[in-house]
Design a protein around this nucleic acid. Structure first.
Lengths: 144, 144
DNA sequence: CTTCATGCAAACCCTTTGCACGTCG
DNA sequence: CGACGTGCAAAGGGTTTGCATGAAG
């Protein structure tokens, strides 16, 4: 997956530099969403000598290529999620941060209905689902 | 509508002070979403002598009472929208900023389907729709 | 070798906080 | 009067930018 990101960046004409390789590697190791600060911490903990700016600049590049998507957590923080560059939505686990992509699931019907009721011409939508993933569900059941 | 906000705040045991009255007034004048900075600008332009902090503190109060909802614009900015304190979603005009609330429109079916596919237990969702409102549609048609 | 990326630090938002003073009820 | 709200300024986070140096193709 980390390789996919690199080849996609390469094809987009982006230089595959050391810091970029290392950061995508770190992103790959993380499962689920992460904040810019977390990624930066990862890099610092490994003494990679990567600057804040580089992290933000790479995230911007990845977002341009839709290899990563910026999302807003319910608590207001910003996070990034690695994902496929096709239209989809995210299902985020509030407990462990894992996320899954979900496809359409019938949202088109919703937007159409909303358009009909309001007279708006809908161009974009953003749907984010938050809950508990299967893993965390079973762990909680055991603990209690 | 600005009165509605005030009475709702009153009922919540919040003091109806001068600055709060003036700010809700300004919110009422605005149609559609606004950012904290815009509201602050409004206040400064009218020389109301209202501080930054007061603006943020009022927005927090209004959000607690669900009289206003904080939302994330597609461009990443944070905005606030005055709204009814019931569960619903927003339809925001990308051209003029007007917004409408839309009710359910069948989103429950979508979350249920997503839950079924993923095994997640869904607790929260956020849906934001962006497009062009009827007014702006007709204006554009005339212009071009 | 030329272009582009990097690290660093400073600059910039946006938002929150501490505090002395003013105001509401 | 007493609790609460206010303005101001400063602090705090997160993100961006300017610039001299260093690496990629």
């Amino acid at each position: 997956m980390t390789t996919e990101m690199l080849t996609a960046l390469d094809q987009a004409g982006v230089r595959l530099t050391g810091p970029r390789r290392q950061l995508t590697e770190l992103i790959g190791r993380r499962q689920g969403h992460f904040t810019a600060a977390e990624l930066l911490d990862d890099a610092e903990r490994r003494r990679l000598g990567i600057g804040r700016a580089t992290v933000f600049r790479l995230l911007e590049l990845l977002a341009e290529q839709s290899l990563v998507e910026r999302l807003d957590l319910p608590d207001g923080r910003h996070a990034y999620i690695p994902c496929e560059p096709t239209h989809h939505h995210h299902l985020v686990c509030l407990n462990c941060g894992t996320s899954t992509d979900v496809g359409d699931c019938g949202i088109d019907a919703v937007t159409t209905e909303a358009a009909r009721r309001s007279g708006f011409e809908i161009q974009q939508h953003r749907l984010e689902l938050f809950g508990t993933c299967p893993d965390c569900q079973s762990k909680k059941r055991v603990k209690r």
